[in-house]
């Protein structure tokens, strides 16, 4: 999210509410207790308020009975259809048997065009601005170089004994990455690209720290979030070592025309303010046997996706035949997102 954008909104917000407004509304604020805050936070139009209340009282998705799930989904479909002025479906499809999703990304092929980022935003109904949310970030890595001039430079320089020299700018220095690059054209000569997103860890630290089990691992290996259960404490954002999680700092801005009506309860349904979200391997698609949006759009075929339990699947073949690595293995998170080179 761009900081400047946010700042201007803050100023706007404060100026925008006149004093009269404020007095009128605080009147009700002081009588309403904690529960009143819920209505206050979500708007008070009558029909909508009823839906809101029912939503407010519902339990964690994983604990709902089939009946309750159906009701919750119907409620959402009704609310979304009204809000976005089109027929919105909310799928509740559970994980399929004998499926464990895995991802493999060929960093040799990635050209840093960020089509995956854009496709993901479109597919998954992220907030477009204030806050601007993107689940995939592509990091542009400096290639770095060794040069003869640096042979004798370094720290400390006295006594002719030095520890630095070329060691400070060797090839592929990891921390010199940058994910706000604005190239004329890609790929650039001095760079390679390193996309990151939620790694769907098998032992996810984000799940462990969540105080209310909003975020949990599904049987098909996807770490999901029940947006209606999240209390917005952001413990998970502190714990995720891959910077995969995003927060709805304000009410998401999702234009009606751009809204993707084909949603899943645990996936791309529109979120509300104050909750966390992240990549779900497009479970609204992949649980129906489709590819993720990013796999489909990648122009160079760098992205591969499939069932890790199926020995014939593309990911499994890649894991068997290519040179593969994962990020930050020292943390024992066992990501199901693999990087490979040919």
């Amino acid at each position: 999210m761009k900081r400047e954008d946010k700042k201007t909104t803050i100023e706007k917000n404060i100026e925008g509410s006149t004093r009269r407004d404020f007095l009128k509304k605080t009147g009700s604020l002081s009588v309403a207790g904690l529960a009143g805050v819920a209505t206050l936070m979500t708007g008070t139009k009558d029909a909508q308020a009823r839906v809101t209340w029912a939503e407010w009282f519902q339990t964690n998705y994983r604990l709902m009975t089939e009946e309750e799930k159906r009701e919750a989904i119907e409620r959402l479909e009704k609310r979304y259809s009204e809000e976005y002025g089109k027929k919105v479906t909310v799928d509740g499809r559970p994980a399929q048997k004998n499926v464990l999703f895995g991802y493999a990304l060929n960093i040799q092929k990635c050209i840093g065009c960020r089509r995956c980022v854009k496709a993901c935003v479109k597919e998954n109904n992220q907030s477009r601005h204030d806050p601007e949310i993107e689940w995939i970030r592509v990091i542009r890595m400096e290639k770095g170089k060794f040069s003869a001039e640096d042979m004798d430079k370094g720290y400390p320089s006295d006594y002719g004994i030095q520890v630095g020299g070329n060691a400070y700018k060797n090839a592929g220095v990891v921390l010199e990455g940058q994910h706000y690059y604005q190239p004329e054209r890609v790929p650039e000569k001095d760079a390679f690209y390193f996309p990151i997103q939620c790694m769907q860890c098998e032992k996810p630290p984000c799940v462990k720290v969540c105080p209310v089990r909003t975020t949990y691992r599904e049987p098909d290996g996807i770490v999901v979030i029940d947006y209606n259960w999240c209390i917005g404490c952001r413990m998970c954002m502190g714990a995720c070592p891959y910077w995969a999680r995003r927060f709805n700092w304000g009410e998401p801005n999702l234009p009606k025309e751009e809204m993707n009506p084909d949603t899943h309860y645990l996936g791309n349904r529109p979120r509300m303010k104050g909750v966390v979200e992240k990549c779900t391997f497009c479970l609204q698609r992949t649980r129906k046997g489709r590819y993720t949006a990013c796999v489909e759009v990648c122009p160079v075929g760098a992205r591969k996706f499939g069932n890790l339990l199926d020995p014939e699947s593309e990911v499994r073949r890649i894991l068997e035949r290519k040179r593969v690595f994962r990020l930050r293995v020292d943390l024992n998170t066992f990501p199901k997102f693999f990087y490979f080179i040919d």
Binding site: M1, I10, I14, W249, G250, K273
Partner: peptide, 15 residues
């Protein structure tokens, strides 16, 4: 009141 109605966007926190 600002924070409750507009959300944490009125803070300077970021992702």
């Amino acid at each position: 009141y600002q924070q409750l109605t507009k959300g944490l966007i009125v803070t300077n926190l970021t992702d």
